[in-house]
C-alpha cells in the first residue's frame, strides 16, 4: 500500500533538514563586519548629532527654565527590590504637573540605582508644596497607593527635589521621603 512508505522521508530531505537546522543551530549571533564603513559613518553622525542635541537641550532648558525659577523633581528608589513601581503622579501646589507609567525596563533602571528626572518647570519664589501619588506592588505582592506631600520654600536659584521611595520588610509598608538640592 502507498501508505506504507516511510513517513520520515519528508523530514530527511536535505532542504527541509537544512531549514530546520538553521533555526535550531542559530545560537550565536556573529555580527558581520562587511558594513563597517557605513556603521562608522553612522557612528560619526550620531556623535555629532548627540553633541548638537546636548547644546540645543541646554539652550532650551536655559530659555524655558531659567535658573532663578527652575524646579526639578527627581525620583529614586531607596530600597531597590521592595517595590514594583506602577505609576507616579506629581502635583505642584495641587496642580498636576507630571504622571508616569513605568515599563519593566524603567523599573529595572530605577532598581539599578538610576535617578529619573520626573519633572522640570518654573515656579516663583515663595512657599509651595509638592504632592506625589504612588501606586506600586510591594514585595509581599500587595497593591499599594500612597500619597505624600512636602511643603517647601523656593528662593532664587535652581531647586531640585528628590523623591525617594522605599518599603521595609517585614510589612513592606511604602514610604516617601523628600530631599531638597539647592
Amino acid at each position: 500500500m502507498h501508505g506504507s512508505q516511510p513517513l520520515k522521508g519528508c523530514l530527511k530531505s536535505p532542504k527541509l533538514l537544512a531549514s530546520a537546522l538553521v533555526i535550531l543551530l542559530s545560537w550565536v549571533c556573529i555580527p558581520g563586519a562587511g558594513a563597517a564603513t557605513l556603521d562608522d559613518r553612522i557612528d560619526q553622525l550620531a556623535a555629532e548629532v548627540n553633541d548638537h542635541s546636548a547644546k540645543v537641550e541646554g539652550l532650551q532648558e536655559s530659555l524655558l527654565y531659567p535658573v532663578n525659577t527652575r524646579l526639578t523633581v527627581f525620583l529614586t528608589l531607596e530600597t531597590r527590590k521592595a517595590l514594583d513601581l506602577d505609576s507616579v503622579e506629581l502635583f505642584v501646589n495641587d496642580r498636576p504637573v507630571a504622571s508616569h507609567l513605568y515599563t519593566p525596563r524603567e523599573r529595572s533602571a530605577l532598581e539599578a540605582g538610576g535617578v529619573q528626572q520626573l519633572y522640570i518647570g518654573n515656579i516663583e519664589s515663595g512657599a509651595h508644596s509638592i504632592r506625589a501619588v504612588i501606586t506600586a506592588r510591594s514585595a509581599d505582592k500587595d497593591f499599594v497607593r500612597r500619597e505624600a506631600s512636602h511643603p517647601f520654600t523656593k528662593r532664587p536659584g535652581a531647586l531640585g527635589v528628590e523623591l525617594k521611595l522605599g518599603a521595609r520588610a517585614p510589612d513592606f509598608e511604602p514610604y516617601v521621603s523628600f530631599t531638597e538640592w539647592k
Binding site: 535617578v115 529619573q116 531640585g160 528628590e162 538640592w181
Partner: peptide, 14 residues
C-alpha cells in the same frame, strides 16, 4: 545642567 551633582551618576545610569 538642571541636575544636582550628587544625582548625576544616577541620572546617567537611568
Amino acid at each position: 545642567i538642571a541636575v544636582p551633582e550628587d544625582l548625576r551618576p544616577g541620572v546617567v545610569r537611568y
